[in-house]
C-alpha cells in the first residue's frame, strides 16, 4: 500500500472503494485517474510506458510523504502502471483522504503535478505508421512550479 508500481491493469473503482473503507474519521476523499489518451484525429494503437524501477519507487514514496505532511492528509495512495497499455486504460491513480475537501483536492493535485516531471516514466506512442516518444511539455513544468 502507499505506492504501487505494476504492469497489470487495475480497476479504478475497486481501488477507490478499498481506499474509502480505510477512511473512518475523514471528511473528504479525492480520487484522480489518468487514462491513456488517444485523439480521434490521430489515434494510437498502444502506449508503452518505460520506467526506472528503483528511482520511480523512491520518487513516488517521497512525493507521497511530502504530500501527506504538506496538506495534513490522513492517507494517500499512488498506483502507476508501466508496460504496454491500450487507449482509454487507466495509467495512474492518486487517492487522498483528509478531514476537509480542500486539502484532499490540493494533495491529489500536488501529487499529480509533481509526479509528471519528477517520476522516471517515459511514454512512447504506437500508431499504424510507427512509434514515437511523447515530448515533455513546458506546461507540465509550469504546473509543478505553482507548488514551489
Amino acid at each position: 500500500m502507499g505506492v504501487t508500481l505494476q504492469a497489470q491493469a487495475f480497476d479504478p473503482g475497486a481501488l477507490s472503494n478499498a481506499f474509502l473503507e480505510r477512511g473512518a474519521g475523514a471528511g473528504a476523499a479525492v480520487t484522480f485517474t489518468g487514462l491513456v489518451r488517444s485523439s480521434p484525429d490521430d489515434p494510437i494503437t498502444t502506449m508503452t510506458l518505460e520506467h526506472y524501477p528503483a528511482l520511480a519507487r523512491r520518487q513516488l514514496e517521497n512525493l507521497r510523504r511530502d504530500a501527506m505532511a504538506r496538506f495534513a492528509l490522513l492517507d494517500a495512495e499512488i498506483i502507476h502502471r508501466f508496460g504496454t497499455l491500450r487507449p482509454g486504460e487507466p495509467i495512474v491513480q492518486v487517492m487522498t483522504l483528509a478531514p476537509h475537501r480542500q486539502t484532499a483536492f490540493d494533495g491529489a493535485n500536488f501529487i499529480m503535478d509533481t509526479l509528471k516531471t519528477t517520476a522516471p516514466f517515459w511514454k512512447k506512442e504506437q500508431r499504424p505508421g510507427g512509434e514515437s516518444w511523447v515530448d515533455a511539455r513546458s506546461s507540465d513544468d509550469d504546473a509543478k512550479a505553482r507548488w514551489d
Binding site: G34, Y52, H80, L115, K116, F121, W122, W133, V134
Partner: peptide
C-alpha cells in the same frame, strides 16, 4: 549513474 530524457509520466 543513470542518464535519461525529461520524464513524461502520469
Amino acid at each position: 549513474v543513470a542518464l535519461f530524457p525529461p520524464m513524461t509520466g502520469g
